[in-house]
Simulated assay, not measured.
Amino acid sequence: MTELPEEIGSARDASGGQQRAQRKTAPIVPERNVVGNALVFVIAIMTFLSCLTLGAVTLVRDTASVWENQIAREATIQIKPVDGLDMEAALESAARIATGFAGVTGARIVDRQATARLLEPWLGTGLNIDELPVPRLVIVTIDQASPPDFAAMRAMIAPELPSASLDDHRTWVDRLVAMAHTTVTIGVTVLVLMLSATVLSVVFATRGAMAGNGHIIEVLHFVGAEAGFIAREFRQHFLLTGMKGAAAGGVAAIIVFIAFSFWSSMNMATPEADQATALFGNFAIGAAGYLGCALIVIVIAALTAATSHMTVVSYLAEIDMRHPDGG
Rank of each mutant, 00 (worst) to 15 (best):
V256Q: 02
Y315D: 00
F262K: 06
L195V: 04
I230C: 10
A278D: 14
L239N: 02
N213G: 11
D83Q: 09
I109L: 12
S308Q: 02
E74F: 07
L176P: 13
E88I: 00
R73Y: 09
I216L: 11
S93C: 08
T63S: 08
M266Y: 01
L91H: 04
V66G: 09
D325H: 07
G124M: 11
I8W: 06
V312G: 06
V29G: 10
A114D: 10
Q22N: 10
T115K: 13
L176R: 14
R73N: 06
H215M: 07
T182N: 03
S93T: 14
P135S: 06
Q275S: 10
E272R: 15
A306D: 15
A205P: 02
A114F: 04
A11L: 14
T53N: 13
V177S: 07
T185A: 11
S165L: 04
I296T: 13
R61G: 06
T185N: 12
A278R: 05
I71F: 11
F238V: 14
T125A: 14
T58R: 02
G16M: 12
V134A: 07
G187C: 03
D168V: 06
T183L: 14
I285T: 09
A180V: 06
D143I: 00
D174S: 03
T63E: 00
D274L: 11
A152P: 01
N37V: 15
W263I: 08
L220M: 14
S165G: 12
T2V: 09
D167M: 04
D325K: 00
R96H: 05
G286A: 04
S65T: 14
R108T: 15
A252R: 00
P121W: 15
H237M: 13
R12L: 15
G9R: 13
I129G: 03
L279V: 13
G212P: 02
L137K: 07
A317S: 13
F234I: 04
L137E: 15
I139W: 01
A107Y: 05
R112V: 15
T25P: 00
F238R: 03
L119R: 01
L123S: 13
T307E: 01
A145N: 05
S308W: 02
A284R: 09
A44D: 08
I254E: 08
T277P: 00
A26I: 08
G208H: 07
M194T: 14
A90L: 12
A253T: 13
A197N: 08
M179Q: 04
V297R: 09
L240Q: 14
T182C: 04
F229C: 07
F229V: 09
